[in-house]
């Protein structure tokens, strides 16, 4: 039919600007780097290696270490952050709660800070002689200053604390918005039936927010796989910069890509191969998350 055809055309017209921009600025670089990933490069000298870069990756201990580092964030930081965000959203959704606006704004505020700025701030707060140790010592929680950025374990703890501070409110916002879709009558009915808050949280809130939880989980997973600004700036400012955080404890795949491109003998082919493996991992994890949540598109 005539009308159908013209609407189809309009569809393309509407998305054309975005498609042109995406093709230029995202698709072209992606395809170009796919091509590059079959070469081993040194600056602008190229040697074709086919799948050689990919084979090499699986023996590269630094790359594996970077995966291990982010998997800890994946397993520890994301659940803590999302669970906290859910609780905040649940509590703030209570119509009887006072000062709601204040709490919501306060909890969201960290999300407006720039990644670089807040990382610099946290780096100062968590220096060995710094603010956080001073407070903890004064309260008497610890007797010795914690070696936050000097110990591989504590460096990761610092990163996790910083990221949780920055991103919890951001995720809370999605949940809060999602909760507005759940009519208050459901909660009221549950209360009449004698369901306490814990029951309400686990039996009503979480099941009804499932699609949004899935969405935030996938976004956080992708964000973690691409984690760059925070570890880069937390680890910056050392004398020779030999390791990214103590014992490379803050090395993430993106930081490794950056190092392979810009700090080491520049091998853009190898860096491209790393990024494709990251894409693959992101895709697999997203699929698993879809399966676990049991959501069909």
């Amino acid at each position: 039919m005539k009308i159908g055809k013209s609407y189809n055309l309009w569809g393309w017209v509407f998305i054309s600007l975005a498609l042109i921009a995406l093709t230029l600025f995202i698709l072209y670089p992606i395809i170009y780097s796919l091509y590059l990933s079959t070469f081993s490069t040194r600056g602008f000298l190229k040697t074709f290696v086919g799948f050689g870069n990919y084979k090499r990756l699986f023996q590269d201990r630094n790359f594996l270490l970077s995966l291990k580092n982010i998997s800890i964030i994946f397993v520890v930081q994301i659940p803590i952050m999302l669970f906290l965000a859910l609780i905040y959203a649940f509590l703030l959704n209570d119509p009887k709660l006072k000062f709601k606006g204040f709490f919501r704004t306060a909890l969201f505020l960290p999300a407006v800070t720039s990644l670089v700025a807040y990382t610099i701030l946290f780096k100062m707060m968590f220096s060995t002689d710094g603010l956080v140790n001073n407070i903890l010592l004064a309260i008497g929680i610890i007797k010795q200053p914690i070696r936050w950025l000097l110990d591989p374990f504590w460096a990761k703890v610092t990163l996790i604390i910083a990221m949780t501070w920055r991103w919890t409110g951001y995720n809370m916002m999605f949940y809060l918005a999602g909760l507005q879709n759940i009519p208050n009558e459901i909660y009221e009915a549950a209360e009449i039936d004698g369901a306490n808050r814990r029951v309400q949280f686990f039996k009503i809130t979480i099941p009804l927010l499932k699609p949004i939880i899935l969405f935030t989980t996938i976004m956080s997973t992708i964000g973690t796989l691409q984690l760059f600004d925070e570890p880069m700036n937390l680890a910056a400012g050392v004398v020779t910069g030999s390791s990214v955080g103590p014992g490379n404890s803050l090395l993430t795949p993106s930081v490794y890509i950056y190092n392979v491109c810009f700090k080491y003998v520049p091998n853009f082919g190898y860096a491209s191969a790393i990024s494709y493996v990251i894409v693959l991992i992101a895709a697999i994890l997203s699929l698993i998350q879809f399966k676990v949540v049991g959501e069909r598109r």
Binding site: R61, N62, L65, T240, G241, S242, S243, G247, N248, N259, K263, Y264, V265
Partner: peptide, 11 residues
């Protein structure tokens, strides 16, 4: 820098 990184990784 690559060598430095490798050594600091085992430190």
């Amino acid at each position: 820098y690559e060598a430095d990184g490798a050594i600091m990784g085992v430190m």
